[in-house]
Every structure is written in structure tokens, then in C-alpha cells.
Design a protein around this nucleic acid. Structure first.
Lengths: 210, 210
DNA sequence: GCCGTCATCGATCGAAAGGTGGAGCCGCGG
DNA sequence: CCGCGGCTCCACCTTTCGATCGATGACGGC
């Protein structure tokens, strides 16, 4: 017989927690030891120690985000595995979660049996990725990793807010020449030739927050 | 004693349906008569007739959207009430649902007891709005409703994808003059003076999809 | 010390975008 | 019927942006 897998559910939606509980409790080898409605609660519950796998949502209403909580949990000795379970699959979310050390990444529209399989995989240290997520990761590996510098992101963010070069130069205490220079570098790195295209691509790739 | 309230759950996430079922079945006067995993299923299930309240998600993976399904359901004689239950609260989603004739609008992070109260309110024909949703509606009433025409939205959408005026004119089989003309009107309606600012504002207000 | 990256600034020039004003067509409703 | 709003187009002008050169200093790794 297999050993029991002890689970922690971290999601800010009570309804989702109830649904997960209903789905997972039908499996005899799963035990739900705790629930967390905030990322902070998840971190302290995981620190208590008697957890094998954390089912972690990425979006919490306020406070710490799911990927931050994931990193905090995994930073502790004897940390459990973290299986990210979220509604949508933006590039930024995925890479943030993977970088934080998540063992797997599932979407909430996954069928229940797939969920159980992913939990067992995570408990065994194997990674479980939803197909669309895997595809996105491959995509990211193939494309030359677009690494903008901090300053460039700062400029591009203001561009995305609709500011002109002149506005940006005042906001950042720069000359317009510098702003333009940053933009030239940004365009080169992203392979585009206009501010709107740069913003569109950066948003799509999760470099910018909406 | 009160009469039974017959419910239809429409959500593409199995986990959410399980959670809703778990939460709502504890109420003695609720009966869940059907579930729907797509908007189309929801429409046909509601057409069957033995439903009082539909709990409707707005985001479905593909096919018909929740607000379209809401409109389709309410178009039929003897239609049930539709209570929208969704994860997030963009302006566009809210107005689309309200215009489609939804009786109430709840967020999934609502506590379970609030959900029960909203269902009873909907069954009685009273409307139930989450506080943040109500606030947004008030906000929209106050601010001059920024109604862009279909063509203007089409143009603005392409602008948001990073296309130049020339690209847009070719894509829509227009002259650049026409594109510029649409943009001038867009800027006037939104109170901005650049394409990036227009895209930023429109995205923020939910006029554009990300 | 040298090299690469980042950040800063400058000048110039053509292209794109924005501002202004006008015009014709069509459908819908008072 | 006639006005109004949406959609289409045109011309002219100003401003902004992007492209292409260039340059300097700071910082860190090899």
C-alpha cells in the first residue's frame, strides 16, 4: 500500500477550496491537513511541517502573491513540494512560478483525475505540467530570452501608460535623448519598431503588467 | 416552509462546480438540478424549464461566452433568473452581464453565506450585487459613458497590437486618412492625445481585451 | 587593465503620428 | 423630412517619434 500524501490547499476562494476538498477527499491516499485563504497563511501552515504537497493558487486578493509564497515555502528546510494550480496561463505567471521552484503547474479547468495524478507526481518529486503550460515553456526556451535591463523596463512601463518621450524624460529626470536611446535598445531586443508594438509584445510575454 | 429553489450550475471548471455543489447542497431549500461545463450546455439546460436560478460563470474556455449565454437564456419565455458568478470584475464584463439581463453579479471570493443569500434574492427577483461591483456600476453611471463605435474599437484593438496607421488601413481596407479620423474621434472620447495612452485607458476600462 | 553592459546625453533627418477643417454617404428616429 | 451620428475620405500643417550616427562615465568580471 502507498503512504498517505498530506495536502495543504491555498486559495483565496472558499468555493474553490471546497471543490478541491470534494475532489481530492475521494482519493483514499490523500489527506487534507490544512487550508489557507491567503498566501501568508499558506507559508506559516507549510512551515508547521506536516505537509507533503501544497496546492497553491497564484492570484490572491491582496497581500503576498502565490509565487512569492512558493519561494518563501521552498526556502525553508524540509519544505514540501508546491504544485501551482491557477485559472489562467499568462507567460509571466508561469515563469514566475517555475522560477520560484514550483514542482508542477496545473490549470483549474483540468479534469479531476488529472489533478490527482499531478498531486501524486508532485509528491514523488516528478514535475507535472498542463499541456498548454508546457508548450509555453518550450516557446520561451526557443525564443532568445528577452532580457530587458531594469531601466529599460521602467521606461517601457511608462510608455505603456501612454506617456510621451518628453513626459518620461521628466518623470525619470532624464533627457529625451536618453529615453529615445533606451527605446532603441528595447526595440532591438524585442524585434519591433514602434512603441505600441513594444508594449504589445512585452505585455504578451509578461514583461509588463497590465 | 419555503419552496425549493432549483439551481443550474454553469462553469467550465469542474472544481468550481464541485465547490458550488458542496456549498449549496448544505442549504435545505436548494436543489441542484443540472450542471453545465459550457455556455451552450447552459442554454439548453435552462431551456428544459425546470430551473429557477442559473449560476453563470462569465469565462468559458471556448465557444459562447457567459454573457451571450445569459442573453440567450433570458430571451426564452419562462426564463429563469441568471446570477453571474465570476472571478474578476472588469468593467467590460460587468456591463456586458448587466446589459444581458443578469439579476445579480457576485465574485467567487464571496463568502459562502453571501452566496446563499444572493441565490435567494435572485430567486425572488431581487438583484444582488457584490459591493465592488456596485461601486463600479455607480462609477460608470457618473462618468460619461465612453461608448466607442464598433469600428473605433476595431481600430483601437489593432493599435493595441502594435500596428501602424498604414498597417491598420491595409488590414481594414481603408485609407490612412480614415484610420486617423477614427483615432481622432477615439482620442476625443477618451480624453487622451496619443495612441499608447488610448490603449492604456481602454485596457484599464475593459474596452480592450489584453 | 581590458571588455562588455548599462546608463547617460547630443545631433540630425526622414517618417509617422497628431491637429484642424472640411466633405459625402447612409441609416435611424423624432 | 430632416437632423444626427457613424463611417468613409481628403489636404495641410505641426509635433513627435524612430533611425543613425556619435560620445562619456560607471561598474563588474576575466
Amino acid at each position: 500500500m502507498t503512504t498517505q500524501i498530506r495536502l495543504l490547499l491555498a486559495d483565496d476562494h472558499p468555493i474553490v477550496r471546497r471543490g478541491l476538498r470534494a475532489v481530492l477527499e475521494t482519493e483514499p491516499d490523500f489527506t487534507i491537513v490544512a487550508e489557507a485563504a491567503t498566501a501568508e497563511q499558506a507559508v506559516s501552515a507549510a512551515a508547521a511541517g506536516d505537509v507533503d504537497v501544497v496546492l497553491m493558487d497564484l492570484q490572491f486578493g491582496d497581500g503576498m502573491s502565490g509565487d512569492q509564497a512558493t519561494a518563501a515555502i521552498l526556502a525553508q528546510p524540509g519544505a514540501p513540494r508546491v504544485l501551482v494550480l491557477t485559472t489562467y496561463d499568462s507567460d509571466a505567471d508561469i515563469i514566475a512560478a517555475v522560477e520560484a521552484g514550483a514542482t508542477g503547474y496545473l490549470l483549474k479547468d483540468a479534469p479531476p483525475d488529472e489533478l490527482g495524478a499531478a498531486v501524486r507526481a508532485a509528491a514523488a518529486g516528478r514535475s507535472a505540467l498542463a499541456p498548454t503550460v508546457a508548450a509555453r515553456l518550450m516557446n520561451r526556451m526557443r525564443s532568445p530570452s528577452v532580457a530587458l535591463s531594469r531601466r529599460e523596463i521602467e521606461v517601457l512601463d511608462l510608455v505603456g501608460q501612454g506617456l510621451s518621450n518628453h513626459d518620461i524624460s521628466k518623470r525619470l529626470y532624464l533627457s529625451q535623448a536618453t529615453v529615445k536611446s533606451h527605446l532603441v535598445h528595447i526595440y532591438a531586443k524585442l524585434g519591433v519598431d514602434s512603441r505600441t508594438a513594444a508594449v504589445a509584445l512585452a505585455t504578451e510575454h509578461g514583461i509588463l503588467r497590465r
